[in-house]
Design a protein around this nucleic acid. Structure first.
Length: 645
RNA sequence: GCGCCCGUAGCUCAGUUGGAUAGAGCGUCUGGCUACGAACCAGAAGGUCGGGUGUUCGAGUCACCCCGGGCGCACCA
């Protein structure tokens, strides 16, 4: 509702200024510095001042006098040096929230792909991966919240060096026959086993660099896709992928389809992309210099300062990662002229599809994947350069529109706070002692995702058990899990994307202040009100029957009630702005603010015990409105509301 | 060397596309549970927004230059 009025003001002013002054200036809408200034503030007179060569205050007065009545607006006031402050018609506003006008859903042919998680399937997921998945998943929920059609992809690099390293581990560091690996891979915590093995292999390379030949050999076999080594890689990566799906499902994160690198290779996606790139001159064959024999993309295509061309095809004829990524990006937009085959993944928790190189049974129903109009790649900021190359590839092929619609949804890394590193027994040399430590799968440095979740659940369980000793152990655990996940998701979302998170157990395990559980608690309290009411033998009133514009007019004369309602009613605006900014943290911030407003309201006004009928009904309606806004916002954040706390 | 990001209260971070008197959480101190459960609420202390110059009616926000930190710039992914 708030957003609707905002838009209405914007349009009205835009139109008026266009006809009255023949000018097209951006109508910026702000929140007034102080609540008693009104609900919206327009600095538009300042912008016009320059072009009209008049004092802003005079222009503002003119605008206010000429623009006429605007539906839902009680007053426009000139303030300060030329601000225009907008006051809403409170009674109308309350009434509209109670009985919202039907939304005009404009059907859109837009299809958005969000690619996230993308963990190498060779070891357990860690805290850094959780940031990626939580950001990606929340952004998906935000887009869907606005009614967009979104497909979630999780790319599986099952034929890369990281998998090859663990293969080397099973062949040379802790040798194990294939049949035994198959058994071990079915065991719980196989991903933990590989975590250690991977670190051991990396350490082994460091000690004996000649062992890197083992990696090259393994990689080669895996890429060819035949023989025992390839089979070993498949067993490992399939098992780890399921471990990752399980871990992410604990956070409520799901995917629609898992495109795999093996199919990019087997179905010759690269050949198709390479043919296109050659045909349109996007890559050139070097015959001299340091890149002799390679196919490269010219530096000028993707970078202004650098002179280093990017090798796409190595002199030995193999394609680099970026090359494969260009092919994949082309496929996402339906520009490659090829598609994967798909099968349902053998996974019993929910339906998720995976690519395959075998044509399916013609009778089977398979959804359509890819062919997006817009693509978000959730990848950490360190890969900006490579993402730029991918987009330059599209551009060089003449796909400018798709290049514009390719978004690198980047985020900073998660590091371990010095204290956290010390707790994990990671030794840091002298002067770096006070700096955060980078998470490294290769070195085995990091907080494993499942360990962290377990730790959070255990702490939440202590709290739940101390408050609700009467509940069954099973129920306590279920509530504790919801709280733990709420805490974790909120913790990962409250930082803006460009902020490095220095991970610290003490902060992540906090359930007080600006945290997920704080917001959950507010929602639980709001729900409790109607339950208590019914326990007293009363019924939740029929708000539409008992509240009319006059009642809203009365009650919302209270500045306090008005400000609380206003705060609660900004969910649509918060979501809209957060999507535009590409910033899930904004939604998290809003959720906290609404929770704060509600806790304040809850504390200040006895609701059930209110004697005046109209006021009581109004307070109950406010509670219900807060509840719905809190639930909706938490849902976008992927945080559940526990039955009690 | 080139490029990107960051520097705001003791700590961790917001800051709405340049706007009115710079905000929040944590921590510290003070106060509030026989009201709908205190995972809560109220209050206090705490700032030359890294430094400088400029653009502007107006700069935490934009430009340039420094200082300090992080990350990229592979025939690795």
């Amino acid at each position: 509702m708030f957003h609707l009025l905002e838009q209405r003001i914007q349009e009205t002013f835009q139109k008026h200024i266009a006809t009255r002054y023949a000018l097209d200036v951006p109508i910026v809408i702000e929140q007034p510095k102080q609540p008693d200034f009104g609900e919206l503030a327009l600095p538009v007179a300042f912008h016009l001042a320059k072009q009209l060569k008049q004092a802003p205050r005079k222009i503002a007065a003119e605008l206010v006098a000429d623009i006429g009545a605007i539906d839902g607006i009680a007053a426009l006031e000139v303030a300060g040096n030329g601000y225009i402050n907008v006051r809403f018609d409170r009674a109308r506003y309350g009434q509209a929230l109670l009985d919202p006008p039907p939304e005009m859903k404009t059907p859109s042919s837009e299809k958005i792909i969000v690619e996230h998680t993308n963990i190498n399937p060779n070891k357990a997921a860690h805290i850094g991966h959780l940031r990626n998945a939580t950001l990606g998943d929340t952004f998906v929920r935000m887009l869907r919240g606005l009614g967009k059609s979104v497909e979630v992809q999780n790319y599986i690099d099952n034929t890369g060096v990281q998998v090859a390293d663990v293969v080397v581990g099973f062949q040379h560091i802790r040798p194990m026959p294939l049949e035994q690996v198959e058994v071990v891979a079915e065991q719980p915590r196989f991903d933990y086993y590989c975590w250690d093995l991977y670190a051991d292999v990396s350490a082994h390379y460091e000690k004996d660099p000649t062992a890197l030949q083992l990696r090259r050999d393994a990689l080669h076999s895996i890429e060819r896709g035949v023989g025992g080594t390839s089979r070993l890689a498949e067993i490992i990566s399939n098992a780890i992928v399921k471990a990752h799906l399980n871990t992410m499902l604990r956070l409520g994160v799901k995917y629609d389809v898992l495109p795999r690198e093996s199919e990019i290779l087997r179905l010759h996606f690269w050949d198709a992309a390479f043919a296109l790139l050659q045909e349109r001159g996007a890559v050139v064959h070097e015959t001299q210099g340091k890149n002799d024999g390679c196919w490269v993309m010219r530096a000028a295509a993707f970078s202004e300062g650098s002179e280093d061309d990017k090798v796409i095809v190595r002199s030995n004829g193999t394609v680099t990662y970026v090359g494969k990524d260009i092919a994949y990006q082309l496929w996402k937009f339906g520009l490659l002229g090829k598609d994967f085959f798909y099968r349902k993944l053998d996974y019993n928790k929910y339906e998720v599809w995976v690519t395959t190189n075998r044509p399916p049974d013609p009778k089977s129903q398979i959804p359509s994947f890819g062919r997006a109009t817009r693509v978000y790649n959730v990848i950490d900021v360190r890969q900006s350069y490579l993402q730029d190359v991918v987009v330059a590839g599209l551009r060089a092929l003449g796909f400018n529109q798709q290049a514009d619609q390719s978004v690198h949804f980047s985020y900073e890394m998660v590091a371990l706070s010095p204290r956290c590193a010390a707790e994990l027994g990671i030794e840091v040399p002298g002067e770096d002692r006070n700096r955060p430590v980078e998470v490294s799968g290769r070195k085995g440095f990091g907080v494993k995702a499942d360990d962290l979740i377990d730790k959070l659940i255990s702490k939440a369980l202590d709290e739940v058990a101390s408050r609700h000793a009467e509940a069954s152990a099973e129920e306590q655990r279920s509530i504790a899990t919801q709280i733990a996940i709420g805490a974790l998701r909120y913790f990962l979302l409250k930082f803006t994307r460009s902020s490095v998170i220095a991970f610290d157990f003490q902060e992540a395990l906090s359930f007080e202040g600006e945290t997920g559980p704080y917001v959950q608690y507010a929602a639980v309290r709001a729900r409790n009100i109607s339950r208590k009411l019914e326990q007293k033998g009363e019924r939740v009133p029929d708000f539409r029957a008992e509240l009319n514009a006059a009642a809203f007019g009365h009650q919302l004369q209270s500045e306090d009630f008005w400000q609380l309602l206003l705060a609660a009613s900004k969910a649509d605006r918060a979501l809209e702005r957060a999507v535009t900014a590409g910033e899930p943290a904004h939604v998290a911030k809003y959720a906290f603010q609404v929770a704060q407003a509600f806790n304040n309201f809850y504390h200040l006004y006895p609701i059930i015990h209110e004697q005046n009928r109209e006021k009581k009904v109004f307070l109950l309606w406010m509670t219900d409105f807060f509840r719905s806004q809190l639930e909706r916002t938490l849902d976008v954040l992927g945080i559940e509301v526990p039955a009690y706390m």
